[in-house]
């Protein structure tokens, strides 16, 4: 199954993310960010970060979670390719991210936005989200 696809947008980065479960949907959004940044990895040594996000519903939880991931990416100069969810509800996430230190980013992703945000479950049970990032 495709993890995500990039959609047409005039100025920013718009993506559609897929997942068999909500957890996989959130993970694939993290992977889309990682690819979008076009990072040059500095070392393969694993870096672990803990994250905790609360929000009022699943939609805003996704954006708030990704905002927190972007914050960790920017201040630590790291990218993340694994997420271990310790707690996952529609309003709260506790997770452990792991990834690597980077030498440089090829692109900047500055913010996850609520603009035309959509998170929904398809008839076949799979999850899908559309998110716009400010770059």
């Amino acid at each position: 199954m495709k993890k995500y696809e990039i959609l047409e947008h005039r100025a920013d980065l718009k993506i559609r993310v897929f997942g068999k479960t909500k957890e996989e949907l959130f993970l694939n959004a993290v992977l889309a960010i990682k690819d979008g940044l076009r990072p040059k990895i500095q070392s393969t040594k694993s870096k672990i970060r803990n994250i905790k996000t609360e929000s009022s519903n699943l939609e805003t939880l996704l954006v708030d979670f990704l905002s927190e991931v972007l914050y960790l990416i920017q201040v630590n100069k790291e990218v993340y390719n694994k997420v271990r969810f310790k707690k996952f509800s529609d309003t709260e996430i506790k997770a452990e991210l792991s990834g690597q230190k980077i030498e440089r980013f090829g692109e900047d992703i500055k913010a996850a936005t609520y603009h035309n945000l959509d998170v929904h479950q398809e008839k076949n049970g799979k999850w899908q989200a559309t998110i716009l990032f400010d770059i």
Partner: peptide
């Protein structure tokens, strides 16, 4: 960008809840 992210996150629920300001776009 973080300042804007922080205030959007805080204000969307305030706008819809506490202050009940009807606007066509929550952003």
């Amino acid at each position: 960008h973080q300042v804007c992210t922080d205030y959007l996150r805080e204000f969307i629920p305030l706008m819809e809840g506490k202050y009940k300001i009807p606007v066509p776009d929550r952003e």
